[in-house]
């Protein structure tokens, strides 16, 4: 077998791909439109919050310093969790794959994010059980998200995630999307599993970076 054969084979494969139709390209206009949508959503949200929250704020019992729900306030918590209905998988590893739990591109509200650094760890590999996973994320964290949890978990699996020095958070629904806090240095992200592991289960940490750009 010679290099010529290899070159011919690659050219033959390339020829086959030429019959493939071009997929829809990302449209800058559409991306810009999303940004405009984001502004509208933000303005609407502020208006709704003002209408709904202002009367409650005025009537609030100021003798108690505790927040009404008992949850930590946004100021004390480094992350907030976009709920499931607030994000959508836009591109999956392949439409032929059986799951889109960890997409390549996702949309949160009107923002579009592409996956960056990440890792997966099967919980059960032969006789070895690995029930925690840690990834160190580098680079400026502005606007970054991280998806943490597990895919194909067992029914009795309990998952906790921790970002940097923040308190651990319970991962509901087996996967949670968290905002990364502002930090100058690298940030460590952990996911830990307790309970009963499942054979097909994998722990997942996947970072997402914004891809939106108006281009000028």
């Amino acid at each position: 077998m010679r290099i010529d054969d290899l070159t011919r084979e690659l050219q033959a494969q390339a020829e086959e791909t030429r019959s493939w139709p071009m997929p829809a390209a990302p449209s800058p206009v559409r991306i810009r439109h999303h940004r405009r949508q984001a502004v509208l959503v933000l303005v609407s949200a502020v208006a709704v919050a003002a209408i709904v929250g202002l009367p409650q704020l005025l009537d609030r019992d100021t003798t108690s310093g505790l927040p009404a729900t008992g949850r930590p306030s946004a100021a004390s918590s480094p992350t907030t969790v976009p709920q499931w209905h607030e994000w959508t998988a836009l591109r999956c590893p392949s439409r032929t794959r059986h799951t889109c739990a960890v997409p390549w591109i996702l949309q949160v509200h009107a923002g579009r994010y592409s996956s960056g650094t990440g890792a997966r760890q099967p919980v059960v590999e032969g006789t070895v059980t690995s029930r925690d996973l840690k990834v160190r994320l580098h680079g400026p964290p502005r606007g970054r998200l991280v998806l943490v949890g597990a895919i194909r978990p067992g029914p009795h699996s309990r998952l906790m995630a921790r970002i940097g020095d923040a308190d651990p958070v319970r991962v509901e629904e087996h996967l949670a999307l968290l905002w990364l806090p502002r930090s100058r240095g690298p940030i460590d992200v952990w996911v830990t599993e307790e309970g009963v592991p499942a054979h097909q289960e994998s722990l997942v940490i996947e970072e997402y970076r914004p891809v939106e750009n108006t281009g000028g």
Binding site: P23, A25, P26, R91, I105, R112, S114, V211, G215
Partner: peptide, 8 residues
């Protein structure tokens, strides 16, 4: 798709 998004 991802390449074009990153390029854009």
């Amino acid at each position: 798709q991802v390449t074009l998004l990153k390029t854009w």
